[in-house]
Design a protein around this nucleic acid. Structure first.
Length: 255
DNA sequence: ATGGTCGGCAACCGA
């Protein structure tokens, strides 16, 4: 079973890239973030012949998540569900007996800002979400854009970038707390190399100079992570269209 | 060079 995650930075702009990518990679499950499309505008027709079922939750202009699957999707839920008004940042479903949690974690803007406090609170809420709904020995895949680089080797300039909202002790500690509950970073089970990036800022020619970040993750609970046979970062899909600023991350599980 | 580039969507905000 192949499970992938991809921050598309606008689903509608990236339609051609996503459909081509389905054809070339045939993942069983794809988690998508930053769809930037409201539910009534979701391009349902464009995926009608794709061979994938899909569920989604979006909002105007910002955020938005979706799950695509070759196998039937059940037990779908949205959001952290501890506050009545929530952004479209979490979608959960069960596929082939595996719980898939797809998150687009807040970026945080600036460490002095209210948005950064929101990011830290979001992590605390997510930790509670896992504790409330699941057990660490359940079969769970938690994937998405986490807006965190976990280690120095996950950013292009560890000294210069230290203290950034995506690379500081506060967010690293917050993620570690959730991982201690029972998640394994499956990419790092298979690859210890530095400079394995999934994101490059559009600004300043970052991609050209490989000034990247590893911000996208596939986490699995321990028993499921033991069944992960490989995990790799795909080449940035380009086709005829403009690429996203992220690239897909793919994991294969023997299930 | 105190900027740079995208996407949504119509003046900026967010990344």
């Amino acid at each position: 079973m192949i499970i992938a995650t991809f921050n598309v930075n606008s689903l509608r702009t990236r339609l051609g890239i996503i459909l081509d990518w389905f054809g070339a990679n045939q993942p069983d499950v794809l988690c998508v973030q930053e769809t930037k499309v409201q539910d009534h505008d979701f391009p349902v027709e464009a995926f009608a012949q794709s061979g994938y079922e899909f569920v989604f939750r979006g909002q105007k202009k910002y955020n938005g998540v979706a799950i695509f699957s070759k196998s039937p999707i059940s037990d779908v839920s949205f959001g952290l569900a501890d506050e009545p008004k929530d952004e479209a940042r979490l979608i959960k479903a069960v596929i082939n007996g595996i719980t898939i949690v797809n998150t687009y974690i807040p970026q945080g803007y600036d460490r002095e800002s209210e948005k950064f406090q929101y990011k830290l609170r979001w992590f605390a809420r997510l930790a509670e979400y896992f504790k409330r709904h699941f057990k660490p020995n359940d079969s769970i895949v938690w994937a998405g854009d986490f807006n965190i680089a976990r280690e120095p080797k996950d950013v292009y300039d560890p000294e210069g970038l230290w203290g950034h909202v995506c690379y500081c002790s506060e967010v690293q500690n917050a993620l570690n707390k959730i991982m201690e509950w029972g998640f394994v970073d499956v990419f790092r089970r298979h690859c210890n190399q530095a400079a394995q990036y999934t994101f490059w800022d559009y600004r300043g020619g970052a991609f050209r100079q490989n000034m990247g970040w590893r911000l996208d993750y596939i986490m699995a609970t321990k028993t499921l992570a033991a069944k992960c046979t490989n995990c790799w970062i795909d080449k940035k899909p380009r086709s005829a269209d403009k690429p996203s600023d992220h690239t897909p991350l793919i994991a294969q599980f023997k299930v």
